[in-house]
Protein backbone atom coordinates (compact mmCIF):
# COMPACT_ATOMS: atom_id res chain seq x y z
CA UNK A 1 0.00 0.00 0.00
CA UNK A 2 1.31 3.42 -0.95
CA UNK A 3 1.27 6.55 1.15
CA UNK A 4 -2.02 8.00 2.27
CA UNK A 5 -2.81 11.26 0.51
CA UNK A 6 -5.57 13.81 -0.01
CA UNK A 7 -6.50 15.09 -3.45
CA UNK A 8 -9.05 17.83 -4.02
CA UNK A 9 -10.67 18.22 -7.42
CA UNK A 10 -11.22 21.97 -7.79
CA UNK A 11 -13.66 21.33 -10.66
CA UNK A 12 -16.00 19.49 -8.35
CA UNK A 13 -15.70 21.36 -5.07
CA UNK A 14 -18.85 23.40 -4.52
CA UNK A 15 -17.67 25.09 -1.32
CA UNK A 16 -20.34 23.37 0.76
CA UNK A 17 -17.93 23.02 3.70
CA UNK A 18 -19.24 19.53 4.31
CA UNK A 19 -15.66 18.33 4.81
CA UNK A 20 -15.02 21.03 7.39
CA UNK A 21 -18.20 20.14 9.25
CA UNK A 22 -17.48 16.42 9.09
CA UNK A 23 -14.02 16.98 10.55
CA UNK A 24 -15.29 19.25 13.29
CA UNK A 25 -18.03 16.83 14.26
CA UNK A 26 -15.97 13.65 14.02
CA UNK A 27 -13.14 14.87 16.23
CA UNK A 28 -15.02 17.39 18.37
CA UNK A 29 -12.45 20.01 17.38
CA UNK A 30 -12.60 23.03 19.70
CA UNK A 31 -13.77 26.46 18.68
CA UNK A 32 -11.10 28.41 16.83
CA UNK A 33 -9.30 25.36 15.53
CA UNK A 34 -9.88 24.34 11.92
CA UNK A 35 -8.11 21.22 10.89
CA UNK A 36 -9.65 21.57 7.44
CA UNK A 37 -10.99 24.57 5.58
CA UNK A 38 -12.26 25.43 2.13
CA UNK A 39 -10.36 28.12 0.25
CA UNK A 40 -12.09 29.90 -2.63
CA UNK A 41 -10.17 31.85 -5.22
CA UNK A 42 -11.94 34.62 -7.16
CA UNK A 43 -14.98 34.27 -4.96
CA UNK A 44 -18.11 35.54 -6.69
CA UNK A 45 -16.40 35.90 -10.04
CA UNK A 46 -17.34 33.54 -12.88
CA UNK A 47 -14.73 30.82 -12.90
CA UNK A 48 -14.18 30.82 -9.16
CA UNK A 49 -12.53 27.72 -7.79
CA UNK A 50 -12.67 26.19 -4.36
CA UNK A 51 -10.33 23.72 -2.81
CA UNK A 52 -10.42 21.94 0.51
CA UNK A 53 -7.14 22.30 2.39
CA UNK A 54 -5.73 20.54 5.44
CA UNK A 55 -2.46 18.89 6.35
CA UNK A 56 -1.16 17.29 3.16
CA UNK A 57 0.94 14.75 5.07
CA UNK A 58 4.04 15.76 3.12
CA UNK A 59 6.60 13.13 2.22
CA UNK A 60 9.33 15.56 3.30
CA UNK A 61 7.39 17.53 5.87
CA UNK A 62 8.79 20.97 6.78
CA UNK A 63 7.04 20.84 10.14
CA UNK A 64 9.06 17.76 11.04
CA UNK A 65 12.25 19.50 9.98
CA UNK A 66 11.79 22.62 12.08
CA UNK A 67 10.26 21.16 15.23
CA UNK A 68 12.70 21.93 18.07
CA UNK A 69 11.43 19.09 20.26
CA UNK A 70 11.08 16.50 17.46
CA UNK A 71 7.50 15.67 18.31
CA UNK A 72 6.53 14.66 14.74
CA UNK A 73 6.63 11.19 13.28
CA UNK A 74 5.45 9.53 10.10
CA UNK A 75 3.51 6.31 10.16
CA UNK A 76 4.05 3.37 7.85
CA UNK A 77 1.10 4.65 5.83
CA UNK A 78 2.78 8.03 5.29
CA UNK A 79 0.58 9.93 7.74
CA UNK A 80 2.38 12.75 9.56
CA UNK A 81 1.38 12.78 13.23
CA UNK A 82 2.71 14.37 16.39
CA UNK A 83 2.91 13.75 20.09
CA UNK A 84 1.03 16.44 22.01
CA UNK A 85 2.78 15.47 25.22
CA UNK A 86 6.03 16.72 23.68
CA UNK A 87 4.71 19.72 21.76
CA UNK A 88 5.60 23.04 23.37
CA UNK A 89 3.29 25.13 21.19
CA UNK A 90 6.12 27.27 19.82
CA UNK A 91 4.49 27.70 16.41
CA UNK A 92 7.55 26.99 14.27
CA UNK A 93 5.60 24.34 12.39
CA UNK A 94 2.95 26.90 11.52
CA UNK A 95 5.56 29.17 9.94
CA UNK A 96 7.12 26.26 8.08
CA UNK A 97 3.91 24.73 6.74
CA UNK A 98 3.00 25.99 3.24
CA UNK A 99 -0.66 25.05 3.82
CA UNK A 100 -1.23 26.67 7.20
CA UNK A 101 -2.23 23.31 8.59
CA UNK A 102 -0.98 23.56 12.19
CA UNK A 103 -3.58 25.12 14.45
CA UNK A 104 -3.20 26.49 17.96
CA UNK A 105 -6.07 26.68 20.42
CA UNK A 106 -6.33 30.04 22.13
CA UNK A 107 -8.53 29.21 25.06
CA UNK A 108 -6.73 31.13 27.77
CA UNK A 109 -6.00 34.73 28.55
CA UNK A 110 -2.95 36.79 27.57
CA UNK A 111 -2.79 35.27 24.08
CA UNK A 112 -2.07 31.81 25.46
CA UNK A 113 -1.09 29.47 22.65
CA UNK A 114 -1.81 25.85 23.34
CA UNK A 115 -0.34 22.72 21.88
CA UNK A 116 -0.48 22.34 18.15
CA UNK A 117 -3.47 20.58 16.60
CA UNK A 118 -3.75 19.46 13.01
CA UNK A 119 -5.36 16.99 10.65
CA UNK A 120 -4.40 13.44 11.60
CA UNK A 121 -5.81 11.79 8.47
CA UNK A 122 -8.23 10.39 11.04
CA UNK A 123 -5.36 8.26 12.34
CA UNK A 124 -5.29 9.48 15.94
CA UNK A 125 -1.91 9.77 17.60
CA UNK A 126 0.58 7.93 19.78
CA UNK A 127 -1.96 6.82 22.35
CA UNK A 128 -3.76 3.49 22.50
CA UNK A 129 -5.92 3.21 19.40
CA UNK A 130 -9.54 3.99 20.11
CA UNK A 131 -8.87 5.06 23.70
CA UNK A 132 -10.44 8.05 25.42
CA UNK A 133 -7.00 9.67 25.78
CA UNK A 134 -6.45 9.43 22.06
CA UNK A 135 -9.85 10.92 21.30
CA UNK A 136 -9.33 13.86 23.65
CA UNK A 137 -5.89 14.71 22.29
CA UNK A 138 -6.12 13.79 18.63
CA UNK A 139 -9.71 12.93 17.80
CA UNK A 140 -11.20 9.77 16.42
CA UNK A 141 -8.97 7.07 14.94
CA UNK A 142 -10.99 6.01 11.89
CA UNK A 143 -8.01 4.45 10.14
CA UNK A 144 -7.71 1.83 12.87
CA UNK A 145 -11.41 1.11 12.34
CA UNK A 146 -10.71 0.31 8.70
CA UNK A 147 -12.17 3.60 7.52
CA UNK A 148 -10.88 6.54 5.52
CA UNK A 149 -10.94 10.18 6.71
CA UNK A 150 -14.43 11.47 7.43
CA UNK A 151 -13.97 14.56 5.24
CA UNK A 152 -13.27 12.51 2.12
CA UNK A 153 -15.89 9.87 2.78
CA UNK A 154 -18.50 12.54 3.50
CA UNK A 155 -17.76 14.69 0.43
CA UNK A 156 -21.03 14.84 -1.48
CA UNK A 157 -19.49 15.59 -4.88
CA UNK A 158 -16.46 13.40 -4.28
CA UNK A 159 -14.27 16.42 -4.93
CA UNK A 160 -12.12 15.51 -1.97
CA UNK A 161 -10.47 12.14 -2.34
CA UNK A 162 -8.50 10.58 0.48
CA UNK A 163 -6.69 7.30 0.75
CA UNK A 164 -3.96 5.31 -0.92
CA UNK A 165 -2.13 7.84 -3.09
CA UNK A 166 -1.84 5.52 -6.08
CA UNK A 167 -5.52 4.62 -6.02
CA UNK A 168 -6.89 8.14 -5.69
CA UNK A 169 -4.49 9.32 -8.41
CA UNK A 170 -5.97 6.62 -10.67
CA UNK A 171 -9.51 7.68 -9.77
CA UNK A 172 -8.67 11.29 -10.59
CA UNK A 173 -6.91 10.34 -13.84
CA UNK A 174 -9.90 8.27 -14.93
CA UNK A 175 -12.18 11.16 -14.07
CA UNK A 176 -10.18 13.67 -16.11
CA UNK A 177 -10.05 11.30 -19.08
CA UNK A 178 -13.84 10.94 -18.91
CA UNK A 179 -14.19 14.71 -19.06
CA UNK A 180 -12.62 14.61 -22.46
CA UNK A 181 -12.15 18.36 -22.66
CA UNK A 182 -8.86 20.14 -22.99
CA UNK A 183 -7.46 23.38 -21.68
CA UNK A 184 -10.02 26.00 -20.82
CA UNK A 185 -12.87 23.64 -21.69
CA UNK A 186 -12.19 21.75 -18.49
CA UNK A 187 -14.55 23.85 -16.44
CA UNK A 188 -17.98 23.58 -14.98
CA UNK A 189 -20.34 20.92 -13.78
CA UNK A 190 -20.59 18.97 -17.02
CA UNK A 191 -16.85 18.87 -17.43
CA UNK A 192 -16.35 17.88 -13.82
CA UNK A 193 -18.71 14.93 -13.97
CA UNK A 194 -17.96 13.79 -17.52
CA UNK A 195 -20.50 12.80 -20.10
CA UNK A 196 -21.68 9.62 -21.78
CA UNK A 197 -19.81 8.76 -24.96
CA UNK A 198 -20.94 10.79 -27.98
CA UNK A 199 -23.35 12.98 -26.02
CA UNK A 200 -23.08 16.66 -25.16
CA UNK A 201 -21.42 17.55 -21.89
CA UNK A 202 -24.56 18.85 -20.20
CA UNK A 203 -28.12 19.36 -21.30
CA UNK A 204 -29.12 22.99 -21.34
CA UNK A 205 -31.93 23.69 -18.87
CA UNK A 206 -35.21 24.59 -20.49
CA UNK A 207 -36.67 28.01 -19.92
CA UNK A 208 -38.37 28.25 -16.56
CA UNK A 209 -36.92 25.02 -15.28
CA UNK A 210 -35.12 24.92 -12.00
CA UNK A 211 -31.40 24.69 -12.37
Amino acid sequence: MARMKFLCDAERCIECNGCVTACKQEHEVPWGVNRRRVVTINDGVPGERSISVACMHCSDAPCMAVCPVDCFYRTEQGVVLHDKDLCIGCGYCFYACPFGAPQFPQAGVFGLRGKMDKCTFCAGGPEKDGSAEEFVKYGRNRLSEGKLPACAEMCSTKALLGGDGDVIADIYRHRVMKRGAKGAEVWGWGAAYGKPEGKPAAAQPTAGAKS
Binding site: M64, A65, C67, V69, D70, C71, F72, Y73, T75, E76, Q77, L81, H82, D83, D85, L86, A123, G124, G125, P126, E127, K128, D129, G130, N141, L143, S144
Partner: peptide, 15 residues
Protein backbone atom coordinates in the same frame (compact mmCIF):
# COMPACT_ATOMS: atom_id res chain seq x y z
CA UNK B 1 17.26 15.58 10.99
CA UNK B 2 16.16 15.01 14.55
CA UNK B 3 14.69 11.77 15.74
CA UNK B 4 11.19 11.43 17.05
CA UNK B 5 11.30 11.68 20.81
CA UNK B 6 7.74 10.73 21.69
CA UNK B 7 5.74 7.63 22.39
CA UNK B 8 5.59 4.82 19.85
CA UNK B 9 2.37 4.39 17.93
CA UNK B 10 0.74 1.07 17.16
CA UNK B 11 -0.24 -0.15 13.70
CA UNK B 12 -3.82 0.60 12.70
CA UNK B 13 -4.61 -3.09 12.28
CA UNK B 14 -2.97 -4.03 15.58
CA UNK B 15 -5.83 -3.32 17.97
Amino acid sequence: QGKYQGKTDSKPWDN
